[in-house]
Simulated assay, not measured.
Amino acid sequence: MPNMDASYFAVQRRALEIVGFDPSNPQLSLKHPIWAGILVLSLVSHNWPMVVYGLQDLSDLTRLTDNFAVFMQGSQSTFKFLVMMAKRRRIGSLIHRLHELNQAASATPNHLEKIERENQLDRYVARSFRNAAYGVICASAIAPMLLGLWGYVETGVFTPTTPMEFNFWLDEQNPHFYWPIYFWGVLGVAAAAWLAIATDTLFSWLTHNVVIQFQLLELVLEEKHLDGGDSRLGEFVSRHRIALDLAKELSSIFGEIVFVKYMLSYLQLCMLAFRFSRSGWSAQVPFRATFLVAIIIQLSSYCYGGEYLKQQSLAIAHAVYGKCNWPEMTPKKRRLWQMVIMRAQRPAKIFGFMFDVDLPLLLWVIRTAGSFLALLRTFER
């Protein structure tokens, strides 16, 4: 690891450890498979009861949208974990390759400063989503207790409520079964949050550290007088190819994840927004509110990361044009550097099979969610 403070890769390391992975292993091995299995089991055991509960009365759109929004997130978290399991060796290899590149670059003070600045930006993004996700866990655990205690103060009877509404195979009204259902429900929410934190904060870190490789290329251009020398051209092309390969591998690893995420994200947003367009209060309202905030941060972080990577890779073309000493180059060398510029004008992207992950995609998701929200309101009337 680069010679930086303890916060370097700290959020991601802790998140991976919580869900059972060993981030110190180059193959990202699963260190605690039983614990990981319990997390996935808790997700699956909550997803389908919520679907059954939501489909029991199709005329109740509030209940239907409430449960399907959470079901989608649970399904996404399960899918993310399965993708990480299938690609853990590639993910581990990419993490350690970036660590090695950062370690080599950190020997130069201005390069180390660039690495630290980018990792500080990643910490802002990662901690924002992590805190929002932990807010969802806290809301799911505390709100039912507060509502039950409020009922106890008013009526003298503790009325049990669960973190989520679903048809469980145990009767929650039975005092012997309420607490197992309650703790299993909180664990289900925590499992979805932990798996999402592990995947999404890792995406943020990988994106920012791939961006670092493009930014270090710009520093190389500033530090060296580019008069067209073969050695400098060869070094630059080699480093540029490495940065492009890292970005391509990042896109390949997360392709399935971002495709599923954004195919379901607009439905999630419109369903959660529909819930807040309805009056009424329940133990689930704080959970839904924090859940909506976490989803918005989650979607924004992916689109921000994709846009940031694209713009930084495009900046190489402008940097080469501005830093090269064109008058002193021979025509042959000038044509070679022009080819470098042409290649840099094809940006690195995070590709989700049918779309690029960037800020226009976020705008499309919001607009589509608004259209579906209007459709739901029409069905309600």
Rank of each mutant, 00 (worst) to 15 (best):
D171S: 04
F166E: 00
L250K: 10
L217P: 04
T199R: 11
D227P: 01
F259N: 11
L221Y: 13
V211M: 09
V260D: 15
F254V: 12
T201Q: 05
F168P: 02
Q173Y: 06
T199W: 06
A247I: 00
M271G: 03
R278G: 08
L217H: 13
A192Q: 14
R239Q: 12
C270Y: 09
Y266N: 12
P175A: 01
A191Q: 05
G185S: 13
E218N: 07
D245M: 02
N167W: 05
N167S: 08
G229I: 00
S231W: 02
P175D: 07
Y266Q: 11
E218L: 04
V220N: 14
L269S: 05
V220L: 07
F168L: 10
D230I: 08
Q215P: 01
L195R: 06
S265D: 14
L187S: 10
M271S: 14
P163C: 04
V210K: 08
N174Q: 11
L202K: 05
T162D: 02
Q215W: 03
Q268P: 00
L206D: 03
A193T: 14
S238D: 14
W169C: 04
I197A: 06
Y182N: 09
E235A: 03
A191C: 04
V186I: 14
L272F: 08
S238R: 15
G229E: 13
V186C: 13
L221Q: 07
V211H: 11
R275I: 11
F236H: 03
F259V: 08
W205P: 03
E249Y: 01
V186N: 14
S279K: 06
G255M: 05
G185L: 05
L264P: 02
N167C: 01
D200H: 04
P160M: 02
Q215H: 12
E218P: 00
P160Q: 05
P180L: 01
G234C: 01
C270N: 14
L233Y: 15
L219A: 08
Q173N: 14
V258F: 01
I242R: 08
M271L: 07
T207F: 04
E223I: 01
E218T: 10
T161V: 07
W205G: 09
D227A: 02
C270G: 03
Q173S: 13
W194N: 14
N167I: 01
F168Q: 06
V220R: 15
P175H: 03
P160R: 03
E218D: 09
M164T: 11
L170P: 00
F168T: 01
S277I: 00
L226V: 05
I242E: 15
